[in-house]
Amino acid sequence: MALIDRYLQAVKFWLPRDKKDDIIAELAEDLRSQIDDKESELGHKLSDDEVELILKRCGPPVAVAERYLPQRSLIGPALFPIYRVVIRALFLYFLLPWFLLWLGITIFSPDFRADHPGAALLASLEPWWLACTYALFFNTLAFAILERSQAREHLVRTWTASALPPERDPNRISRGASVFEVTIAVAILAVWLQFDAFHRVFHLFGLSITLSSSWPYFFWALIALSLGGIALSCMNVANPHWTRAKACLRLGLDCTSWMLMYWLFRSNLLQSLSGNDLSPNRALNFVSSINFWTARSAIWVLLIGIVVLIFDVRRIIRMATNATRATP
């Protein structure tokens, strides 16, 4: 019976202190009755292997004990879906972009890699790990506290169907947002048209600014893209729903715009600067610095552009998937 005693001891370990002896006495009686029955059936005393078979069928000690414990959860079914949405949003909109940004900088910036050789590269990710840990810990803690507070009861008992948010249509475009887009695009275009594609020298704040020969391309491209954007926004005001054609047009416009921006940042657009109070050497230093830093910032433009394009592509995929589902 040593095997049974060991089994009961293992079960006892996991049981609540005030019920341990009672539960174990009952379980022991059941096991001994089973063994008695089996011995009568077989006509001999059970070997350790045979007893082990009976115990194996009962299940692992921790699982047996668990059934006697009250069913409790850190975050219950009423709050868990909200907890999951919060964690998912934190990951998707904060931690994942942060990680992708780090990855982008690591891949595309040789200076960053040079500044963080070997293990220092992983160490540069330490704030991200800390943010992950803190986000998970404090969210879980907050929801565990909510689970045990009156807030949960309030949430479960006081909801009304009429207070629920209106049905969400992912293909609907806010007219307000479209009007805002048109306003901003027209304002930018108005300012942009103050410049001139046929002259590369501008006079601003007492300075003469000379742009490179690629200036006219940017000038006309930006005008074309602004007009395209305004046209699309006007279409959205008239018919505030995404169609596949409009979604593809948005993708095309965004793709061209962000490529253009990236090219603009890397093109050393500023050719020279001159002014009464500016020595030629200082002007040259200014031009080099401005071109250097805009070129270095191009990676950020590229990364932001990629994020925007991901959203655009996601929209098209969603529409294609919905169309497939709708087709009988």
Partner: peptide, 11 residues
């Protein structure tokens, strides 16, 4: 019914 189900149910 196994013992792991019966006894907790009885309790």
């Amino acid at each position: 019914i196994d013992e792991g189900t019966l006894y907790p149910l009885l309790r």
